[in-house]
Design a protein around this nucleic acid. Structure first.
Lengths: 143, 143
DNA sequence: CATCAATTATTAGTACAACAACTATTTTTA
DNA sequence: TAAAAATAGTTGTTGTACTAATAATTGATG
């Protein structure tokens, strides 16, 4: 494959990832959900399994600790999550959803489903598997 | 396809796009190239065809005008690009590479080629076409 | 046990992403 | 042609990404 093709795929990758995030963000805003896509991802993980240390969350989401710290700060400011001291390690915090946070997740789940489905229109299960394979291969090549 | 699968693709997409940018950025840093990936993309376009208006550049790169303004500001601060007044439209500027900017592009081109090739290791031409198809479909679905 | 190394979370600084609002022009249209 | 609309670029603000540096704590090694 020639140079231009290599450049082309990485350009498309970046462009599409930005578009997906932007689209979801716009839908959130339309609905008056006062939250960002990244904040949503953190909340969704906490909903599935509460009581996460920040660095566990960071690992799950492939974000670094400083980024997580700030996202959690904002979520706590909004009253959607809270930090509790870790019982065995005083360096750590356990992050969990508040009642308001849980309600928010339940509100947003169906909306996110629509957004995801919209992006995937006209594509098949087979496309999905192939797509996933390529994304994972690229990720591993660069790790 | 179920909800979790939809969530998975967008997560992987975002994660991989971040990894690709991060990887290129690290290689730049190793080589002592004092430039970011986005700044590189702007310079590459200016090298291919000089004399671009800022909004033409923005359109080519699918970035918005404020983002371009700031990238150009930084490149001008580094002496790699310059703004000249547009001869026919006093609202516009023509952006072009300086001599130093041209040299920089020539230095970085082969390095970028390596970086891109690394990401694509173990994938075929067919994978690439399929991947491109999915990316473009998603992009268009959300436009 | 004392020291050194590793880990958890934070803060600071720079850059990009997206949106809104604004200035200065140019183009449209009434 | 005068007023309204559109366009080019900038500035301000918020949020995320990455790096480096730091404080507090824990774990490992001598």
């Amino acid at each position: 494959m020639n140079d231009e093709a290599y450049n082309a795929y990485s350009f498309l990758l970046d462009r599409t990832a930005r578009r997906v995030k932007q689209y979801a963000q716009q839908r959130f805003k339309e609905q008056g959900f006062d939250i960002t896509v990244d904040q949503w991802l953190v909340m969704k993980h906490l909903y599935k399994q509460e009581d996460r240390k920040q660095n566990e969350l960071a690992e799950l989401l492939f974000k670094d600790n400083p980024t997580l710290t700030r996202i959690i700060d904002l979520l706590c400011d909004k009253g959607l999550t809270e930090r509790k001291p870790h019982p065995e390690d005083r360096r750590s915090f356990i992050v969990s959803l508040t009642r308001a946070g849980e309600k928010k997740v339940e509100q947003l789940k169906p909306k996110m489903k629509e957004v995801r489905a919209k992006a995937w229109e006209g594509l098949s299960e087979r496309d999905f598997h192939q797509f996933k394979k390529v994304l994972n291969t690229i990720y591993q090549n660069l790790s």
